[in-house]
């Protein structure tokens, strides 16, 4: 498994987790008070930081675990760098997921047209970003397992 593939797995696990926690926090706040008083900015900055940080840490942890497991079996760990195939899979996943992010942008523009609260617009965009990231990771995992 290459470093890129581990990062994709880390994304596939991190995005739904962080997304679920973020929306649980923000939506419970929104249920308790008017949405224009909900402070969503700080939680979202945290969530974005966690998305990036956890993918990096997850990738490193997975690499270390692989190395330890290989040592335990008395083999040398194979930690491959990415190659042309990784690059192609990366392109494919991001390209195909792009269409979903287009719908998110359109939904946000329509919300802005009808004068929705910034809270709903920003969270629609954030949700579509999380879903796009998950879709891209899913397409990449499928390509890793079933070939391009």
């Amino acid at each position: 498994m290459t470093v890129n593939e581990r990062a994709v797995w880390a994304t596939l696990i991190t995005f739904p987790l962080v997304g679920a926690v973020y929306f649980a926090v923000v939506l419970t706040r929104a249920a308790e008070m008017p949405v224009d008083e909900v402070s969503w900015v700080v939680p979202m900055i945290w969530a974005m930081g966690l998305l990036i940080g956890m993918v990096i840490l997850g990738t490193i942890a997975a690499s270390i675990a692989t190395a330890i497991a290989a040592e335990a079996r008395g083999e040398t760990a194979e930690l491959e760098e990415g190659d042309v195939r990784d690059k192609q899979i990366e392109l494919l996943g991001d390209a195909r997921a792009y269409q979903l992010s287009g719908f998110g942008g359109l939904a946000a523009i329509i919300l802005l047209m009808v004068g929705a609260e910034p809270f709903w617009v920003a969270n629609t965009l954030f949700l579509s970003g999380i879903l796009t990231g998950m879709l891209a990771a899913g397409i990449k995992i499928r390509a890793y397992r079933n070939g391009l």
Partner: peptide, 22 residues
């Protein structure tokens, strides 16, 4: 795929910029 990949990067920036503006 190459065309959509190029577009996806910039669209991601658009979404991030919009969130910051909001």
């Amino acid at each position: 795929v190459q065309a959509e990949f190029a577009a996806s990067g910039i669209t991601g920036l658009a979404v991030l910029a919009a969130i910051v503006m909001l």
